[in-house]
Design a protein around this nucleic acid. Structure first.
Lengths: 116, 116
DNA sequence: TCAGGTACTATAACAGATCAAGTACCTGAT
DNA sequence: ATCAGGTACTTGATCTGTTATAGTACCTGA
C-alpha cells in the first residue's frame, strides 16, 4: 500500500471483510456468483473493487464452513449460473461479524481522529 | 476468519489500515515504537490488538517510504527508545488515506446494511 | 531473586487477495 | 459471417500484511 501517489491504495482496505460482505449481499435473496460480484462492484462505484478470483475463493470458503449452500440454476440454454443461499449458520455469523465490523470501524475512526 | 464460534475474528479486520493508524497516532507529536503500540492497544480496548511485530514491520515500511523519520531518544540510562516523526509526505498520505478510509467505511456500511 | 512490564528486533510461516490465464456462452455491431 | 465485449465460472502461482515464535536487554516492585 501507500504507493508513490496515484491509486492502488484501497486494495487491502476491504480485506477481512469479504466473507461478511458476501453474506450481507445474500441476506435478502439467493444470488449467483457473478451477480454478487456486480452488486459489490456497483456499490463500491469504480474503486474498491473486489476481484472475481477473490470472491470465488470466498464462496468456496463460505461453503466449506457451511455458511452458504450452492446450487446450479436451471438455465436450459446459455451460461450456467451457480447460486448461493445463506444458511442459518451463515446468518448467525453475519450478525456477529456485523458487530465486529462496527467495533472495528469505531476504533479506526477514533485512531484516525488522532486524539490523545 | 469465521472460526467455529468463539473469537479469532478481528484479526484481519484492521489489516491494510495499520500504516494509516500509525500515521494518525503520530499526527500530534512524536512517539516511540512501544508507545504507539500501547496507544493503539488502549484505544482498541482489549480485542483488536495490533501485534508488536506488525507495528515494527509498519515502521520499517513507513520509514522506507519516507512517511516517517526515526531517531533514537537520549535516554542516558534504561532501555533505548526509537522515536518516530511524521514527515510532510506522511501527512499528505495520511490525509489521502483518511479519505480512502471514509469511502471504504461507507461502502461496507452500505453492503452490510444488505440493501438491494 | 524473580516475575512482569518495558522496548526493540529478526525469521519463518500463514492466509486472504490478486494476477494471469483459461473455458464457454451470448449479443450486437461491422 | 466475424469479432469485440460482456457474462459466468475456475484454477494455480504469486504477492504481501500479519502473526507466531524467539531472542536480547533493561528496569521496578514484591
Amino acid at each position: 500500500m501507500t504507493e508513490e501517489l496515484g491509486d492502488a491504495f484501497a486494495s487491502d482496505l476491504l480485506r477481512g471483510h469479504t466473507d461478511t460482505i458476501v453474506l450481507g449481499v445474500l441476506q435478502r435473496r439467493d444470488r449467483y456468483g457473478f451477480e454478487i460480484y456486480k452488486a459489490i462492484r456497483d456499490a463500491a462505484g469504480g474503486d474498491h473493487e473486489i476481484k472475481e478470483a477473490t470472491l470465488y475463493a470466498a464462496y468456496r470458503r463460505l461453503e466449506k464452513d457451511g455458511l452458504v449452500e450452492a446450487y446450479w440454476g436451471d438455465e436450459t440454454q446459455g451460461g450456467r449460473r451457480k447460486y448461493y443461499r445463506i444458511t442459518d449458520a451463515g446468518r448467525a455469523v453475519f450478525r456477529r461479524n456485523v458487530g465486529a465490523w462496527r467495533a472495528t470501524r469505531d476504533i479506526i475512526d477514533t485512531l484516525l481522529g488522532s486524539r490523545d
